[in-house]
Amino acid sequence: IEKFKLLAEKVEEIVAKNARAEIDYSDAPDEFRDPLMDTLMTDPVRLPSGTVMDRSIILRHLLNSPTDPFNRQMLTESMLEPVPELKEQIQAWMREKQSSDH
Rank of each mutant, 00 (worst) to 15 (best):
E2V: 07
K17E: 13
T67R: 01
K3H: 11
R55L: 02
D27G: 13
P44T: 00
Y25N: 14
L36P: 00
V15G: 08
T67S: 05
R46G: 03
E12Q: 14
N71Y: 00
E88D: 11
A28T: 14
V52I: 12
I23A: 13
E2P: 02
R72H: 01
S26L: 15
R72D: 02
R20P: 12
K97G: 15
Q73K: 09
R72Y: 01
R20S: 14
E22T: 10
A21P: 11
P44A: 00
R95M: 04
S26P: 05
D27N: 09
E13K: 08
P66R: 08
D101V: 07
R20M: 05
S65L: 01
S99P: 15
Q91E: 14
N64T: 04
E81L: 03
P84R: 07
N64E: 07
E12D: 13
M79V: 03
D101Y: 06
E22L: 14
S99R: 11
A16P: 08
L62P: 00
S99L: 07
Y25C: 12
E12L: 11
A8V: 08
D24Q: 14
E22G: 05
N71S: 05
A16G: 10
Q91D: 11
S99N: 10
E9D: 11
E2K: 10
K3M: 06
T39N: 07
S26H: 12
E2A: 06
E85T: 03
E77I: 06
T39S: 06
D38N: 03
H61D: 00
V11A: 11
L80A: 06
Q89K: 12
S65C: 01
S26K: 15
V15Q: 15
L7P: 07
E96P: 03
A28S: 13
M74V: 08
I14M: 12
N64F: 15
L80R: 00
A21K: 05
E9N: 02
I90F: 02
P82T: 08
D101E: 09
V15A: 11
I14T: 08
K5Q: 10
A19D: 07
S56F: 03
T42N: 15
M74R: 10
Q89H: 07
I90A: 05
S78R: 12
K10P: 13
D38V: 15
A21V: 10
S56P: 07
L47H: 00
E77D: 07
E12V: 06
M37K: 01
A16Q: 03
N64K: 02
L7S: 09
R72C: 00
I90N: 00
M74T: 13
N64I: 08
T67C: 05
F70R: 04
M53L: 15
T67H: 02
R72G: 00
K10N: 12
P84T: 14
N18H: 09
A21T: 09
T76G: 02
F4I: 10
L6V: 10
I57T: 15
L59V: 07
K87E: 09
M37L: 14
H61E: 06
D54H: 01
K10I: 04
D101H: 06
V11E: 12
P29S: 04
K87R: 11
E77G: 07
D43N: 08
E88A: 14
D30N: 07
K17Y: 06
Q91Y: 09
T39P: 00
N71D: 02
R72N: 00
E13Y: 15
T42P: 04
Q98R: 15
R33W: 02
T76I: 06
T67L: 01
D101K: 04
S78C: 10
E9W: 03
M37V: 07
V11G: 09
V15R: 12
I1V: 06
E96A: 11
I23G: 13
P66Q: 08
S100C: 11
A8L: 10
A92H: 13
S56A: 08
I14L: 13
T67I: 02
I23S: 09
K97H: 13
E85V: 13
N71V: 02
I14V: 10
T42Y: 03
P82V: 01
A19P: 09
R60C: 01
K3T: 08
F70Y: 15
